[in-house]
Design a protein around this nucleic acid. Structure first.
Lengths: 254, 254
DNA sequence: TGGTAACTTAGGTCTAACCATTAGGCCAAT
DNA sequence: ATTGGCCTAATGGTTAGACCTAAGTTACCA
């Protein structure tokens, strides 16, 4: 119909609307709760009202309330416990949530092991630099404990690899940058999972790793940021070359 | 009681059990579907059976089936559409899932803007280095288009900032490392959100940014990895200093 | 030919009930 | 004093069935 038409009907074009999106009820509740959690309105560990209480308060059905809670649980914003003293308890997302997402990305997108190692080469020297600047005595002690575990000749391969991961994560944590440490925790687990059954971790590699960790830890102890970044760069780069030596193709991780 | 005791009762410590976890029905189904999606058993875009079909196939209730689907949806593994041709369609997690988790982490953990900028300083020079090595002509064209948009004097601040983000993300994508580009996409959005209403983006900063992007793009075009990493390092570092100039304290992002 | 009404199929929401898990208290048997 | 049996209460987990809403498909009629 024409805009200038003056027929028997009023001009319906006088009012124009754009496509609107109608949110789902469970999303509305999830969004509301998420905002209030993220802004810190509820302290960590606070218990949300019981499901049936949320039903009466929101006038939504229990199905809808439960879907909202499930969303928040998957996002790592609440932890749900069953039983008498159960309920939904507030928590802030942490390394777990980050590691979970990174793992899904890696597996779903078939991220090459080479890309994982590349990413670590990008992040970790910087972590070492920050760690050298900001490390506390306690964090230094954790680093040295991990080194002791790795040097223990009676340790088997899984123990060695676990202590290896622990050391790397400890360096990241000592950077006092929670984003970096979250990333490194996720990355380290993924690299660990991808290399644990490789045969390349021979005695020579183990000794080289122990020595590298020791010298980097020294730099962090002395708060020598330049040495820390330089040595870490060399360490992760040579480790990456070692892993990829016999493994030149684009092998995915899953 | 002692382990060597030989009294009238048998030694109860002979059997030791660890705490056991009993999975929920919805988790069982979600895990099953997640594995099959991640291993690529279903091509991207494939439609899962309708909810009511999953009910008959699994003998679970519709509520349980829906909870499982909701879990996968939040994890970015399926996309759910209503209506006649609706249903759950397989997708692999991508930048959105990563960006969403990073944002939750940043907001919930009150990550300082300084930490965001630090993290970018760690990642982005490496992206530039890889981009210089691997960039395709098409990716180069995207970089130059973003530069053109930013140089357009008639562009307002939001357009400038958006083109800025686009350029940075394009550099990351040109690295051909999906993990890095996912991280940078998430980071860029967060930094954009944290700085968009800052007043510091004056004419001088805009010109400096345009110039820096141009020289970095040159290095990527010429596949000069050393120059690319050096210039990017300088660019993001000076940008960070500019942002934090009047803003020395540990301001969080939320 | 064009529009619109009716149908169909999918997800979204609600209700009501029952099951399962956990904490705590009480008490009888040993 | 310890152990196991038993009950109660509170909470999340699960089920069944109905109805609502969104969005393609089809058929029909002016």
């Amino acid at each position: 119909m024409s805009l200038t038409e003056s027929g028997s009907r009023p001009d319906r074009s006088a009012i124009q609307l754009s496509p609107m999106k109608v949110p789902k009820a469970s999303d509305v509740l999830a969004n509301e709760l998420r905002e209030r959690i993220l802004t810190g309105e509820f302290a960590e560990g606070t218990g949300l009202p019981a499901e049936r209480d949320l039903v009466t308060q929101t006038r939504m059905s229990r199905t809808t309330v439960r879907e909202a809670l499930r969303i928040l649980e998957v996002q790592g914003l609440i932890r749900i416990k069953a039983g008498r003293t159960g309920g939904a308890f507030v928590q802030q997302p942490g390394e777990e949530a980050m590691a979970s997402t990174v793992n899904l990305l890696i597996r779903g997108r078939r991220i090459r092991l080479a890309a994982l190692l590349e990413t670590r080469e990008a992040i970790e020297p910087f972590c070492a630099q920050l760690a050298a600047t900001h490390r506390t005595p306690e964090e230094l002690e954790i680093l040295e404990e991990a080194n002791r575990l790795m040097s223990n000749d009676s340790a088997d391969l899984p123990q060695f690899l676990q202590a290896n991961v622990d050391w790397h994560v400890a360096v990241a944590r000592a950077s006092h940058n929670e984003l970096l440490s979250g990333l490194m925790a996720a990355l380290s687990r993924a690299i660990y999972a991808a290399t644990e059954d490789e045969k390349f971790v021979d005695v020579e590699v183990r000794h080289a790793t122990i020595h590298a960790h020791a010298t980097i830890t020294d730099a962090i102890r002395e708060q020598d940021a330049d040495a820390a970044v330089r040595r870490m760069k060399r360490h992760v780069h040579s480790y990456a070359e070692e892993v990829l030596k016999g493994d030149r193709q684009q092998i995915d991780v899953s």
